[in-house]
Structures are given as C-alpha cells and as structure tokens.
Amino acid sequence: MTSHSRGAAREGSGHFIAQRFTALALLLLGPWFVIAAAVSLRGGGYTSAIDFLSHPVNAVATILLLVFGLYHMQLGMQEVVLDYIAKPTTKVLLLVLNALVPLALGAGAIFAVLAVNFGV
C-alpha cells in the first residue's frame, strides 16, 4: 500500500511544480513575444514575418515559448478535464487528445521555425 502515501494520482506534486516552473518561464517569454511580434509585424506583411523569425534570438525564444507554453497548457487543460468531466470514456478520450494535440502542434510549429531559418 505504498502508493497511498503519495496520494490518489501519485503525481500531483510533480504536476504542481511543473505548472509553476513553466509559468515562471512564460512570465518572461510571453510578454517578450507579444511585444516583439507586435512591433516587428506592425507592417503586417509576409516579409516582416519572415524577417522576425529569421533573427536567431527570435527563433530560439519562439521555440522556447512553444515548448513551455504547450506544456503549461497541457497541464492546465488536464486539470480542467479532471475537474469537470465525470463520464469515464469522455474523460479518457479528452485526456488522450490533450496529450497528443500539444505534441503534434509543437512538432509542426518548431519544424516551421526551423524551416524558415534553414529551408526545407
């Protein structure tokens, strides 16, 4: 019965710490992206988007934003699903979807940033 000593889910504190750790990273990366993108993309054209993502600092910070943001939102949505969805099949389906969607988006979006910089 050792599992009981760690609570029902046995991973609650890891979730708690990861959510706050990613929150701290996003506290810097989020406002940076909003302001940098707003200033760089104000003209709004395709070339200004390419110019923005071609700068190494912007590319790296955007990839970090994606990693921390997608992980943070996955943790948050997991909490929402566990809180509000009672029906077991719906709950499991949504949890699986929540595990896969951020992963697929992360792979696609990081590849997109790399493709802009190095070509495909």
Binding site: Y46, A49, L66, G69, M73, M77, V101, L105, A115, V116
Partner: peptide, 29 residues
C-alpha cells in the same frame, strides 16, 4: 486559460503558415 489553449493552437498554425510561403500566408494576413 482555455481561451489561450485555442490561441496557442492558432499561434502554431500561424508559424506553419509563415513557413508555408507567401501564397499560404496571404489569407492569414
């Protein structure tokens, strides 16, 4: 938080549209 989940999906799609080239980016713009 739920709204930002959707916004992050759109951010990822925006990045893919940029990588997709000028033609793919035009309707997004």
């Amino acid at each position: 938080g739920i709204a930002l989940y959707g916004a992050t999906i759109l951010l990822a799609l925006w990045l893919m549209a940029v990588a997709g080239g000028a033609e793919m980016y035009a309707p997004v713009q």
